[in-house]
């Protein structure tokens, strides 16, 4: 899976460079987030601007990251959601769980 990880001030930015975040690749994202938690990086921003399609496994990986970050007094926030990806968060009511920002800069400023 194409993931770009970069330190950006208070947070680690993870850019998901895939068109699909699904049952085939979401475990890679989950593992990457766990690696960051083990390095005590607990504030994560996941940029989904290149993701056109997300399924329940992709959502599950993000929920897992969110719960792990929260358990470590950190946070996992999202940005760059395409309309149909955003509609998935609304269908499953996860838009009430995550803090979702239009772009990276607004999201980073919130940490």
């Amino acid at each position: 899976m194409n993931l770009r990880v970069e330190e950006r001030g208070e947070a680690m930015l993870i850019e998901v460079g895939e068109e699909r975040l699904d049952a085939h690749n979401s475990s890679d994202l989950k593992s990457q987030m766990l690696n960051l938690f083990e390095e005590n990086r607990t504030n994560l921003l996941v940029d989904l601007k290149e993701v056109r399609f997300v399924d329940s496994s992709g959502l599950g990986a993000l929920v897992s990251g969110f719960k792990n970050a929260s358990a470590r007094n950190g946070n996992l926030k999202l940005c760059g959601l395409q309309p149909q990806v955003k509609s998935m968060f609304e269908l499953t009511r996860l838009h009430r769980v995550f803090e979702i920002f239009p772009g990276v800069d607004e999201a980073l400023a919130s940490f």
Binding site: D55, S56, S64, F66, K67
Partner: peptide, 10 residues
């Protein structure tokens, strides 16, 4: 907030 179980719901 469960990690799994949304597939059939969707």
């Amino acid at each position: 907030i469960p990690e799994h179980g949304r597939g059939v719901y969707i």
